[in-house]
Amino acid sequence: MNNIYAKQELTTQELQMLASEMDRRKKSTTTTWLLWFFFGGIGGHRYYLGKIGTGIAMTLTLGCFGIWSIIDLFLISGMINRKNTEIETEIINELNLMKNAKNNGATAV
């Protein structure tokens, strides 16, 4: 929800850059579900979503013998949304850093 307020501060060009970067960096729902289906028992989908610690735990316990994989069936959509929101926030922060650097460079000259 915080990204809505941050996006209001962006120019049209920056919003286009945001959309372009999101298309490139966002995590795919289809890929995540395929990883869950084929490698869910060893946490393949969690590695893909950047949850390395719990991915390792799933690998070492074989997903608690499948129980964890069944639980993730209900959690995957939320994990994908949270990761994509996190990626969007990172991109917005990068755009703001670029804007600030550009403004500071212009005032220094």
Rank of each mutant, 00 (worst) to 15 (best):
I71C: 08
S28Q: 03
I91L: 01
N84W: 08
N84L: 02
D23W: 11
E21P: 06
R82D: 06
S69G: 13
E94G: 06
I80P: 05
F74E: 09
F65T: 10
M1Y: 03
E9Q: 11
E14G: 12
N100A: 14
L60M: 06
R24F: 14
A57P: 01
R24H: 10
A106L: 10
G105D: 04
M1C: 14
K99A: 04
W68E: 02
E90W: 06
G40D: 00
G66L: 01
G43N: 09
G41F: 14
W68I: 09
E21R: 12
T61P: 08
T59E: 06
T61C: 12
N2S: 15
T59A: 15
L73C: 13
R82F: 11
T54E: 01
S69H: 10
S28G: 05
G41Q: 00
A57V: 14
F74L: 10
K7M: 12
R25D: 12
I42R: 01
W36Q: 03
Y47L: 06
Q13E: 14
E94L: 02
K83I: 00
L35A: 04
K102F: 07
N2F: 06
M79V: 02
C64T: 15
A101Q: 14
M1I: 15
G41M: 09
L15R: 13
L10T: 03
M98E: 15
C64G: 15
N96K: 11
A106W: 11
I76C: 00
W33E: 04
L75G: 13
I87W: 03
A57D: 08
M17C: 12
K27Q: 01
T89V: 09
E94C: 04
N100H: 14
T85F: 07
T85R: 13
N81P: 15
S77E: 07
L10S: 08
E94S: 12
Y48G: 02
W68Y: 10
E88K: 03
T85E: 11
I70F: 07
I70E: 00
K27R: 03
M98V: 05
Y48P: 11
F37W: 05
L73D: 04
T12V: 12
D23A: 05
I52Y: 05
L49S: 02
M58L: 09
I87L: 07
T32R: 00
K27Y: 02
Y47F: 15
R82C: 03
I76K: 04
E88N: 08
N103Y: 14
G50Y: 02
I91P: 08
N96F: 09
D72K: 00
N103P: 00
G66T: 01
T59P: 13
T59Q: 04
W68L: 11
M22H: 10
Y5P: 15
L73I: 06
A19C: 04
I80L: 11
L49A: 07
M17T: 15
V109F: 14
L73F: 08
A57M: 03
Y5F: 11
N3D: 11
T61N: 13
T31Y: 04
A6H: 00
G55A: 02
F74V: 11
K51T: 15
T31G: 00
E94A: 06
A101F: 10
I42Y: 05
R46V: 13
F38Q: 05
M1K: 06
G78E: 08
T32S: 02
F38D: 10
T11Q: 03
